[in-house]
Design a protein around this nucleic acid. Structure first.
Lengths: 187, 187, 187, 187
DNA sequence: CATGAATGAGATTTCATTCAT
DNA sequence: CATGAATGAAATCTCATTCAT
């Protein structure tokens, strides 16, 4: 009784096919076929093919949450921990979609724009949580913290395009490995 | 006098256009146009369009190096440091190419295979350096160290598809940020 | 008012052009042109060019007939005569089509298969007529008679590929000619 | 030491491929490949692709024979029998080639012309044998006999295009089959 | 609202042929 | 003589999009 409507079936089909074959290599006719709807209906709901992509952006979990649910007044660390836990839980449900959108963002400005504005909303949200947990924080600090955390979340949400942070991680690993090997060899 | 041959001009044009527009959205005719060659010549050198992609894989810097140049006998850490420095230097020259290949690997198995076999060769190379620097290391340790390091290099080379290691990094960052904010707020 | 639909006009055009120039030497664009339809419509109805050939096979007169119309109970010879007369009449209407299909069967397995299954249906039909005319015939005799007659009909329908039976005919002709010449010369 | 020259290898390769795939569907590059010669050499020996077809016509056994070998003076029948035996022996060696040429004759006037002129020479040859065996024959009789026999030979040589003569054969078979079935049923 | 036939621009690919070496 | 890179015309096929019903 709760079977999804044609529009939703089309979007679900598009998501699968775009993930597998890429946007450009997926004909709208194949989307219609997989969704089990006539070809004309795809263009009835989505006048141009790229509209499917922008509609998919809106399918991303909004990561909207009531700050009151996570804020621990006076404890920023605990508040952020709880925030990240909530955000993380919504990640897994949209891993494929996030990955495909991010891949297409390179070549589809509309997707890039959408992802960017999503990012902006995420920053705002974090800022709100921090402000609620610790109202006396300096605005500039809150800003950069919110931005950093939004980056980290988005990074894991869709895989970072540029991995500038890998440097330290790598040298730490490097030292660790060398030590471990030296220890093993010395034994 | 040393102007590149037609085949190279075609590959260079393909690299630029694939990076900008994506593989599927780039007509071979546009590649020919930008390379300044007739359309037929593209297919003379590359029977099928995806062959351009696999040819591009071979254009990645081979990261081949003479182990003797980096090995510091008895000092694995220093050897690896020097190895990574050398590998890093070749990264920058192919950042765009690496990124585009990795993006297309999702939908082009041939590219994925090529990148995978490249990875295998990289592991071998690292193993050789470690073995030369410290011959008494346990084989299993050398194996895992080589694999870890190859992963890290490839990750930065083309952006990891799955960032399983991000978890710890993130919680460390999180704590740091909370502390920093608390300290700032307390001042 | 009864003007044929686009699909039929395409097939008619293909039949004419294939007969004149051969399958491979006929561009689909010329078929569209002669049929008075846009190029894309040919591929809308016939995904691949060889599909035109298999569709053409189905245009052959089916040689289906109601056994009751030709069977003379108790008289196999008369029944078969009437059957052959009926089959012959449908031959002339498709002489060109039959010839072209048989020519292309050499290089298009799909056509060969289709012609073969048509042949099988023809055998069944003859068997049915014989059985109705003379129910007491031995099954094996009916089988071979049906096969022989189907061969002869198909042979004239589309020209036999191998003329194994020509041997006797020829020696008979040869003797006849020699006799005729000898008689003429002796006069 | 007797290995065939490049030109012959090209023709042999063309014969095989034309027989399998048809003239139009066989690229010259594939002919070169199968012949084991560089692509340019095919066009070096055969400026245009259809020249391969006309060269193949000349590869047909010429059916030239010294009338003295078959003529039995005064016995036309015996003379023709011996002539046909000789001609038959050359058939088997070129069955594939004959078949493919005849198939392509429909669409390649040059082949049709070549086959026609071959036919003319065959008629002349037969006429010469008849005339030598029985010089007093009426010219008109000799003409028609020669033409009939040349037809029969060519028919078997390459399969007749239209089988107008099948009618009688068929009704004879028909009567025979009906009789046979009636006899079998009556037993 | 929904449909699928129709359209035509344009993509990939093939290939005979030329020609400089 | 022989070669294979180069050429470009043309073929097959794809597909987003439109539109009459």
């Amino acid at each position: 009784m709760n079977e999804p409507g044609a529009r939703d079936r089309i979007l679900a089909a598009a998501e699968e096919l775009f993930a597998d074959c890429g946007f450009d290599a997926t004909p709208t006719s194949r989307i219609a076929e997989r969704a089990g709807v006539p070809k004309g209906l795809v263009h009835y709901y989505f006048k141009r093919k790229p509209d499917l992509l922008t509609a998919l952006v809106e399918r991303l979990p909004e990561d909207r949450l009531d700050p009151a649910h996570v804020v621990v007044p006076g404890d920023v660390a605990a508040s952020l921990h709880r925030l990240v836990d909530v955000l993380d839980r919504s990640l897994d449900s949209s891993a494929m979609l996030s990955h495909l959108l991010w891949r297409e963002a390179d070549t589809h400005p509309a997707v890039l724009d959408a992802l960017r504005s999503r990012f902006g909303r995420l920053v705002e949200q974090i800022r709100a949580v921090v402000a609620a947990a610790q109202p006396r924080c300096a605005a500039a600090d809150v800003d950069s913290a919110a931005h950093l955390l939004a980056s980290a979340v988005s990074y894991r949400h869709s895989v970072a395009r540029h991995a500038e942070d890998g440097q330290d991680t790598m040298h730490r690993e490097l030292r660790f490995l060398a030590d471990a090997l030296a220890a093993g060899a010395g034994a």
